[in-house]
């Protein structure tokens, strides 16, 4: 049931409107004074609703899909074998992978028998869906927490292998790696 429309009756003082303006101005002055003194105090979030960007950053959840990184295992060997499954499944077709056999003296750097010679992600095409992370058989690629991805030239937006590895080292140093995936417990009676 809609409420019936009632014509509001204005008192004489209201219809002059000057006193309403003065009341409004008192309110505005209170806000101004509070924020004026707040702007001198150092520290984050002093003026109530604004986050000053480079100094205050938002908390990112651990499952945020940001900039990609190539993972290393506990002994520091690269996990990626260059199979190209991520490139096949990528909906935006932005990953380019070249496989190469691991040479004799470089066993300590790579975990498998093959490794990826070139690995390139074009950030201008990537849609950050996370399919490459879900499909990788070795769990070698993960989407991390980087979101400040603007650069000045197109060439700088291609993620090469060094940059991907650098992202991993930075994330490990700052303790932003995702916790290890744990298999969910299967229910005891699957078949009835």
């Amino acid at each position: 049931m809609a409420k019936p429309v009632v014509e509001k009756k204005y008192s004489f003082l209201d219809s002059i409107y000057l006193f309403e303006i003065l009341k409004g101005m008192v309110l505005t002055m209170r806000h101004f004074m509070f924020n004026f003194f707040a702007s001198f105090r150092p520290g984050p979030h002093t003026i109530p609703t604004t986050w000053q960007y480079p100094e205050d950053r938002r908390e990112i959840s651990p499952i945020f899909r940001g900039e990609h990184m190539l993972m290393l295992d506990e002994q520091g060997r690269e996990l990626c074998v260059g199979c190209g499954m991520c490139a096949k499944i990528c909906p935006a077709k932005c990953i380019t992978v070249e496989m190469a056999k691991v040479k004799e003296g470089e066993e300590s750097k790579y975990a498998g028998k093959t490794h990826c010679k070139n690995f390139n992600i074009d950030l201008l095409r990537c849609i950050f869906c996370g399919f490459c992370e879900e499909t990788c058989p070795k769990s070698a690629i993960e989407l991390g927490q980087g979101y400040e991805l603007s650069r000045f030239t197109k060439e700088e937006c291609q993620l090469g292998k060094e940059r991907l590895l650098k992202n991993y080292h930075w994330a490990k140093k700052n303790n932003k790696l995702k916790p290890k995936k744990v298999e969910a417990e299967q229910p005891k009676d699957k078949k009835e």
Binding site: T28, H31, F32, N35, F36, S39, I47, P48, T49, T50, Q52
Partner: peptide, 18 residues
């Protein structure tokens, strides 16, 4: 700056002090 402080936001504060 006056408009911003009345509206609970900082206003221009990067180009020089305040």
């Amino acid at each position: 700056r006056g408009a911003a402080l009345i509206q609970d936001r900082p206003g221009p504060n990067r180009a020089g002090l305040f």
